[in-house]
Nucleic acid binder design. Structure first.
Lengths: 319, 319
DNA sequence: TCAAAAGTGTTATCCTTACACCCATGT
DNA sequence: ACATGGGTGTAAGGATAACACTTTTGA
């Protein structure tokens, strides 16, 4: 049997903060897709280099921080056309871009568009309280699905579906863990609550209960879920948040950016203290006359912290 | 220009505890290498499936826990023969294997050998105190290297070499961070303290100062460093330690396994308490008449914890 | 009897969490 | 005046870290 042709793809989740909500850059066009390109070791010395170039070519954006996420290689992740199509193993990357500059820089989006990431994951945004979607549709459907063992056939290793649902959606003791984005996505996919499950042929229009949210091509929404989870985790021990901030900012700006990523409110007074005595920021001396309120002191990232401590993160508490 | 042929490789870091020290499985033979195989999407539905089969075929071991680490794709990571050799992008995996069974099962190592992981990283084992190697050779050589800016040419993004050394080797305020295994490896590689740097042609025998330790082929030791770092990090929020333990064990056994992975001693009394009131284990009722000492109660992993909490880890303290 | 490991109890300290309250500005 | 966000103080609670001490076995 002849071997299949292999191809290494690169996928980029490029995050920027727009209007106090995280957004991703997408290639312009009909369907929602992540910027994608082939990795050619002839042109690029490293995959990260290839990724950076691809992002700039496709979106006009030069990302600052770039990090490899995961490599997606399952057969059938791109179920197209004839069998002769090459098998694509895709390496997902997370890239952070400073977008919310004060300088009113018109972003030249060569060939890209922006989309708020909670359009794809409305159940992940708890900033205005627990999303009604959860109790109205998602959780009932999940429980109904888990109650029919016949449908639950794909889960081999690990926990039973009901326990998974309980853990990932925080059913008891109200413990919603903001890092379990991927687990929640996968449960919903398995239960046929996402349009991708219909496209993939795992469900039909009839026996699925699609939750309103934007789907993406192939497994791109899965890659996005991985990116959100990784970013939420990373912020707790690395100061990558500043890759998304302008040069100077108020503590409230910073708080709102953090809240937008975690998708939940944090305690104002304690947040300020935690940030300040973590020595992550320093005052610039200037202050900003804000919209309705006392002027706020402006701060900048104290980048020297990187030379001082190995894991300076944002210890954010609840509420 | 014709495109290069691509190939997806799978590399496995298979960890088992042997004689209270973590060891990895290697393919038998002259040089030290990780089990390696090609990923063929025709045969295997997922990469993890391919990895599991490859591990079993090459070592006779069926790993329990398997996790993807990182994908290594830099050009020149396998600098061999003519230019027509295919470019290999390699996906590294971490696999944990229950090896230290009481049942005296003779492990049939089909085609593999075992090697303690601190043979490759002697400076990472602090169980008997701070390794003399560090102050005698490693740190002096690193500082000497960093003092010559002419040699320091490859680091583009990020911190200056001296700060990197200070952070990753915990020079001031005695803060050795046990998770920075990869950072330390990379600093030593960059400074020409590892045999790999000579093989790769970055240094000659003369201007290098090789630190005694076992080298591996290609970038395999780098993959191993990634695995150690990941495992040390993971243990803090996931109970994967039990994938390395026999069915029942004493708390001291558990402590020694934890210590062997972190490469440092932990505080005995507090460790017991932390483990017990994290509800990670339950007594079996039986006890073990130990070697010279009071018999210890035997425990087993309370696997129900997985159904109860999202991130049950080992909160181990210092010392 | 002594060494070695098991196991318990207690306290000081730090960090998180929560609550209360005052300050400065625009409308 | 009052709404809005900026900013400070402090006390309760919980978790960690450190220390002291008793118990049970084998040699």
């Amino acid at each position: 049997m002849p071997e299949q042709i292999m191809e290494i793809g690169l996928n980029a989740v490029i995050v920027a903060i727009v209007d106090n909500t995280p957004a991703i850059l997408q290639t312009a066009g009909e369907n929602d897709a992540l910027p994608y390109g082939k990795f050619d070791p002839g042109t690029h010395r490293t995959m990260e280099e290839g990724l950076r170039e691809l992002v700039e070519a496709q979106t006009g954006i030069r990302p600052g921080y770039v990090e490899q996420l995961y490599t997606f290689g399952d057969r059938g992740r791109m179920p197209v056309a004839g069998d002769k199509s090459p098998h694509v193993v895709s390496v997902g990357y997370l890239a952070l871009s400073r977008f919310n500059t004060d300088q009113n820089t018109e972003i030249k989006l060569t060939n890209a568009k922006l989309r708020a990431w909670y359009d794809f994951f409305p159940w992940e945004d708890w900033r205005k309280g627990r999303p009604a979607l959860l109790d109205e549709t998602i959780i009932p459907h999940l429980l109904e699905w888990a109650a029919h063992p016949a449908r639950v056939n794909r889960i081999i290793r690990g926990l039973d579906p009901l326990s998974r649902i309980r853990i990932s959606f925080g059913l008891e003791e109200s413990s919603w863990d903001d890092e379990l984005v991927l687990e929640r996505y996968e449960m919903m996919y398995a239960a046929g609550l996402l349009a991708e499950a219909v496209v993939d042929g795992r469900f039909t229009q009839e026996n699925s209960n699609i939750i309103p949210s934007i789907a993406m091509v192939h497994d791109h929404r899965r890659i996005l879920a991985t990116a959100i989870a990784r970013l939420r985790g990373k912020l707790k021990y690395r100061p990558v948040i500043f890759e998304l901030m302008p040069e100077t900012f108020t503590l409230f700006d910073l708080q709102q950016t953090v809240e937008s990523i975690f998708g939940r409110a944090v305690h104002k007074q304690n947040f300020r203290r935690l940030v300040e005595n973590a020595a992550l920021v320093e005052p610039t001396g200037a202050s900003q006359r804000s919209t309705g309120g006392r002027p706020a002191a402006l701060f900048r990232f104290r980048s020297r912290i990187l030379k001082e401590r190995p894991a300076p993160g944002l210890k954010i508490g609840r509420r």
